[in-house]
Simulated scan of single mutants.
Amino acid sequence: MITKGLIEKIFQAASIQRWNDHVRPTEFSEIDKQAHKMIIAYTIAKFQEEENPGCVNWIHLIEGGIFELLHRVIVTDIKPPIFHKIMKEKGKELNEWVFDQLDDDINPVKGNFKESFIQYFQDTHYAPFEKKILHAAHYLATNWEFQIIYQSNKFLYDIEKTKNEIESQIEYHIDLTGVQKILSHRNIAGFINLCGQLRFQQRWAQTPRIPKTSVLGHMLIVAILSYFCSRELGACAKRMYNNFFASLFHDLPEVLTRDIVSPVKRSIKGLEELIKEYEIIEANNRIFPLIPEKWHNEMRYYIFNEFENKIWHNDTVTMGVSPEELNTQYNEDRFNPLDGQMLKACDDFAAFLEASFSIKYGIKPEALESAKRNIYQKYRQKHLAIGDMDFIVLFDYFH
């Protein structure tokens, strides 16, 4: 069961400000950093698997990213140098305190989520390679932010020390082929930069709202929600992988078109289809040249027709598969299943959360209240089942 507290913890990362003791030319939120980190982790892991097929346990990688986000949300007030010192000397005690804080929220989640969460932080032999990839991705994402921060903070005491520490950590992970590629190949670095730019694109850009969320952070929220829904469905490993990363990349074309709000898309007949056509053309021209050709089919599977239920078997993509068929006939890795309709539900729910939290905090323009009402009614009438759970239950938490 997906709990209200767990959803609140995830969304809390949108309110956590990074580098808030530095001059910041723009806001940096924890959810954006974590989203960028997971995109970088995907990139590193893909390169590692090209070199050594099967070397990455993708479920451990996905879960590790979620575990680290939740851990970060709980200990957010601790500055990194102090945090690392505490973890070195009192890591077991701090982790146990974190487990206690999250127990009610994560205990009901299916798939031994709580047990895996505890093992991830307590057992040094659990998912060591995936931890290393995530650690490398963490510092690369941090460095991406720091390159912006550094220009405005050269006068600060210890800024060079921070710079050297980040560079030292990146160098420590240089044995990973994926890290080498990101640092030395202009195209793949361009892909990482392009994804990072999505943190500058605000959701609901014309509507006052708190906390502000970017397209980048929104994609991670949708990805995490889709992971939990996949657990509810008892999804096979490949289905969980597809659902998570399709969600993580589903709005990637918006880096080329910006976040065009739904009312505008639907205001003129055929406009939504025209925008989609433009996104395909621009993605082919500007996104795909940045990544290895071997990845193209998977990325197309994720960002085109992203809200369609589909399978990818024997080099053929079949769309229009029903949820029942995905659950009963195609819930095997060999079919490469993807729950596009569920992804759409998670996407809508994330938008509902964005409106709900702002309204809760007292910023409630009519656009947000109307959106919240409309999305709620849509799923009240739909009766979408996710495993044993009616999806409306999640909406009812915040209605």
Rank of each mutant, 00 (worst) to 15 (best):
H22D: 05
H22Y: 15
H22P: 02
V23G: 00
V23W: 06
V23T: 09
V23L: 12
P25T: 12
P25F: 11
T26I: 14
T26E: 14
T26G: 00
T26R: 15
T26V: 14
E27Y: 11
E27G: 11
F28Q: 03
S29T: 15
E30F: 10
E30H: 11
E30R: 15
I31K: 05
I31D: 11
I31H: 08
D32P: 10
D32R: 07
D32S: 13
D32M: 04
D32N: 15
K33L: 13
K33W: 02
K33C: 04
Q34C: 06
Q34H: 14
A35Y: 03
A35M: 06
H36Y: 04
H36L: 15
K37T: 10
K37N: 07
M38G: 02
M38N: 14
M38F: 03
I39E: 06
I39T: 11
I39H: 14
I40V: 15
A41M: 03
A41H: 00
A41W: 01
A41E: 00
T43C: 02
T43K: 04
I44C: 12
I44H: 09
I44F: 08
A45T: 08
A45H: 07
A45R: 02
K46F: 09
K46Y: 04
K46I: 01
F47L: 05
F47Y: 15
F47T: 00
Q48T: 00
Q48F: 00
Q48S: 10
E49R: 02
E49Q: 08
E50W: 02
E50A: 11
E50T: 07
E50N: 13
E50V: 02
E51S: 11
E51A: 13
E51N: 10
N52C: 08
N52M: 09
P53G: 09
P53H: 07
P53W: 07
C55D: 01
C55N: 12
C55L: 08
C55K: 14
V56T: 14
W58H: 09
W58Y: 10
I59C: 02
H60W: 06
H60N: 15
H60C: 08
L61R: 07
L61V: 09
L61C: 06
I62F: 03
I62D: 06
